[in-house]
Simulated assay, not measured.
Amino acid sequence: MFSGSMVALVTPMHADGRVDQASLEKLVEFHVENGTDAIVAMGTTGESATLDEKEHCKVLKQVVEMAKNRIPIIAGTGANSTSEAIELTQCAMDAGVDACLLVTPYYNKPTQEGLYQHFKKIAESVAIPQILYNVPGRTAVDMLPETVARLAGIANIVGIKEATGDIQRGVQIIEECGDQLDIYSGDDATAMELILLGAKGDISVTANVAPKAMHEMCAAALAGDRETASAINDRLLGLHSKLFVESNPIPVKWALYEMGLIPDGIRLPLTVLDAQYHDVVRDAIKQAS
């Protein structure tokens, strides 16, 4: 359903942690103007874990209104409570998003059968296209390819964001489920290779800072043009790594603040980027032109 560079959008905030609506609209325009292929709002990078349900739904509704049907909107609606994930997914559908992105339940560490039943229940409860999201480095649970294959048979489960950074894992899912699911990279450093091997795009942190370059890189990779994709990706390698010198979204929010696009607000327990990393991130931005 979706392809190319899909930005995992930050949620801009004032210094006191309130959502900055004016900056949010500025970011939506920034991505429309620079060719981003879809916006993923209220995911990990959007600090979904620290926005309550009312705030979460309000941001989704605002992003849809700001986008004005010019760019697809995908909503992060995952939770470690199945009932909460259903409620968030329903509010996202009511807000008018095009699809939902659902992370594996974190902290409570369900079994593979529990993962299957969780995602099956959400898909059966809310009739909107849904994209699975596997990121074991953050959730402490790894959804295995055989579980993905079981879920691929559910009609409105349409894709998976595979964020292990393991290209072979991505290729295995492409081979087993590629005719039923679209596979997206969730790891900027390996996204180009996975797209060249059959993935449909990248749900990207780097795209917050370099949206045009990420769009062009993904487009070249989707066209099978390794030479062009590699030339662009080489400029972005610094961002792919340095935007993770502290926990995401700490560095990327600071980078956007440095670029004059958002204030420096971030919610506890996350804190503003430590000064020792400022030049590191600045250099990565310069490298990416």
Rank of each mutant, 00 (worst) to 15 (best):
E65R: 14
A207M: 02
D16E: 06
S241N: 05
E29D: 14
D16P: 05
L243K: 03
P251V: 07
C100W: 14
V19T: 02
D94F: 10
A79V: 08
S23D: 03
W254I: 14
G198T: 15
P269V: 15
P211V: 08
A275S: 11
V252H: 04
F119W: 01
A95E: 08
T228L: 10
G4A: 00
L27Q: 01
G96M: 06
I262Y: 04
A284F: 09
D274E: 08
D179G: 10
A221T: 03
D274Y: 01
G35T: 01
P211L: 06
F244H: 02
I173F: 00
N134M: 12
K286W: 06
A163F: 11
N208T: 15
C91E: 13
W254D: 10
T36I: 14
A255D: 07
L27Y: 01
G96L: 08
K61F: 09
G43S: 10
H31M: 02
L239K: 00
D52N: 15
E227C: 10
I39G: 03
K54C: 09
D279P: 02
T206S: 12
A255I: 07
L222N: 08
D16L: 07
D283M: 14
Q21S: 09
A123L: 03
A189K: 05
K253W: 04
T77P: 06
A199Q: 09
A207H: 04
E47C: 01
T89P: 05
I195A: 12
T206C: 12
L268H: 12
A229H: 09
I232V: 06
A41T: 10
I173S: 11
L9W: 00
A152D: 15
S125G: 11
V28I: 05
G43R: 01
D283P: 04
L102A: 13
V245D: 07
V280S: 10
K253R: 03
L268T: 13
V103G: 12
A191L: 04
L88F: 07
E65N: 13
V7I: 12
I128M: 01
A67E: 11
Q168I: 10
L151E: 10
M66Y: 11
G43E: 08
H56F: 02
E216K: 14
D234Y: 04
E124P: 05
D52M: 07
E113M: 14
M6V: 14
G170C: 09
A123P: 04
D279R: 00
